[in-house]
Amino acid sequence: MDATVVAVCHSAEHTFSKPVQDGITLLAGLGVEGDAHLGVTVKHRSRVAQDPTQPNLRQVHLIHEELFAEVADAGFAVAPGQLGENITTAGIDLLALPTGTLLHLGDDAVVEVTGLRNPCLQIDRFQGGLLKQVVSRAADGTLIRKAGIMGVVRAGGQVRPGDRIRAVLPEGEHRPLEPV
């Protein structure tokens, strides 16, 4: 299966879920045009409270559509945008990508993968018990985060449902994703 964009979303407000759009515009170095998290410095409220000058490594949030099927098996109904992502993907194992992977989206846009989304209690406010589905522990006790990945925009462009996704892995030793 080719990797594709399933849905795109943005919200000008700091809301948990984001409405699905016909298309979004990625702006180099900033993020998603019209989104509350657009900017060079961090925009997530909890991180702004800690240090508003830190770089925004969370300009774009991507989630794999396959997660929705996984949580559906546990009785949860989740649709694109409802977990706050900007881009819903299919056919690419986002969580297995190394830090620094370049995701080419559509004709022009490029997002550099910076790390994992660190899910919070807002997920349980959306649907009680859902947090345990997107955060679990491996047999060795390692925390497994499945609520998507974060990135920064390296090249701007339009992104629409149906666009192809091409991943370019970084050269050298691959660094596994860590929460950002």
Rank of each mutant, 00 (worst) to 15 (best):
Ala3Lys: 03
Thr4Lys: 14
Val5Glu: 02
Val6Ser: 11
His14Tyr: 13
Thr15Arg: 09
Thr15Gly: 11
Phe16Trp: 13
Lys18Gln: 04
Lys18Gly: 04
Pro19Lys: 08
Gln21Gly: 01
Ile24Tyr: 03
Leu30His: 11
His37Ala: 14
Val40Leu: 13
Thr41Tyr: 00
Val42Ala: 09
Val42Asn: 03
Lys43Ser: 06
His44Glu: 05
Arg45Gly: 14
Leu57Gln: 09
Leu57Trp: 09
His61Gln: 10
His61Phe: 13
Glu66Pro: 00
Leu67Met: 13
Ala69Ile: 00
Glu70Thr: 05
Val71Leu: 09
Ala72Pro: 00
Asp73Glu: 15
Pro80Phe: 04
Pro80Leu: 04
Gly81Arg: 01
Gln82Gly: 01
Gln82Ile: 06
Gln82His: 13
Gly84Thr: 01
Thr88Glu: 01
Asp93Cys: 12
Leu94Gly: 02
Leu97Met: 07
Thr99Arg: 04
Thr99Lys: 05
Leu102Val: 08
His104Met: 13
Asp107Glu: 15
Asp107Tyr: 08
Asp108Met: 10
Glu112Asp: 09
Thr114Arg: 02
Gln122Asp: 14
Arg125Asn: 15
Gly128Val: 06
Lys132Asn: 11
Gly141Val: 14
Ile144Trp: 00
Gly151Gln: 05
Arg154Thr: 06
Arg154Gln: 13
Asp163Tyr: 03
Asp163Lys: 05
Ile165Trp: 08
Ile165Lys: 08
Ile165Val: 15
Leu177Cys: 06
Leu177Gly: 02
